[in-house]
Amino acid sequence: MSKIKPSKGAPYARILGVGGYRPTRVVPNEVILETIDSSDEWIRSRSGIETRHWANDEETVAAMSVEASGKAIADAGITAQQIGAVVVSTVSHFKQTPAVATEIADKLGTNKAAAFDISAGCAGFGYGLTLAKGMVVEGSAEYVLVIGVERLSDLTDLEDRATAFLFGDGAGAVVVGPSKEPGIGPTVWGSEGDKSETIKQTVPWTDYRDGEVAKFPAITQEGQAVFRWAVFEMAKVAKEALDAAGLTSAELDVFIPHQANERIIDSMVKTLKLPESVTVARDVRTTGNTSAASIPLAMERLLATGEAKSGDTALVIGFGAGLVYAATVVTLP
């Protein structure tokens, strides 16, 4: 048997830079109320959401990703040519072939970086981060760009009073690269396909094409079931990720849960008994739920506003359609 030379990676990986892009159009609850029978007060009390951003025709999945990635690359202090792989998590890119990651890699000016899309719903950022860490440590890429991007306004049923107000658009990106110290902890992740009905696209694209349904597919969810799972089951997963990183909540600076709904965030914080010293991301108030983009967008905002700082220890957890989840502890860039 011939001996195969192994690749040589970095001892550890960390997030080196983060960037975000929020579409220019800010949509207040009043606009949502044009199509559903509800109230600003109801929407705020059930979700914490005051405004969200909706993309225009020019703000495509690729265009938003390129903007966010450019910022992340600059923040990391590297060039696009150094990027070895581009991982894009999205559920709202409507041209599935080729992967949108290839267009993004090209537009950024990478040197033929490996590029592919993944589908892991609102846990997509954590899934991408885990892949990136593996690539950097294993040596198949020195720097990996992980992008979470969504145009969920395209998949929103504006007449569904349970979800019309929930979703937003945007892109968040991070650069993962080599580190002398561990900057990304063990990932606690998984799937629960037996609960696939709780968050889903209403019908397959083909049903719409074939005229079997009149309405374009949208994302729908069973609010109470999702809330229970997200708060109580995901709090356990978050705690496992903290334990796996060898940390206690007292050693945590920042908590960045997927920005699904502020009520979920509040209840998770309570269930996890996080000390008041921990800064909690609440970007959902002005960004809505942007699925895979929500964690990097919230991370970028916390750093931009000074609520969190470079070197802080942050617990991140994504959870959503699948159901799928991924949690880990990271050092902020």
Binding site: R46, Q224, V231, F232, S267
Partner: peptide, 11 residues
């Protein structure tokens, strides 16, 4: 007690 608080009560 709204629908989300009801979940917390139930748990």
């Amino acid at each position: 007690v709204d629908s989300l608080s009801m979940v917390e009560v139930v748990v």
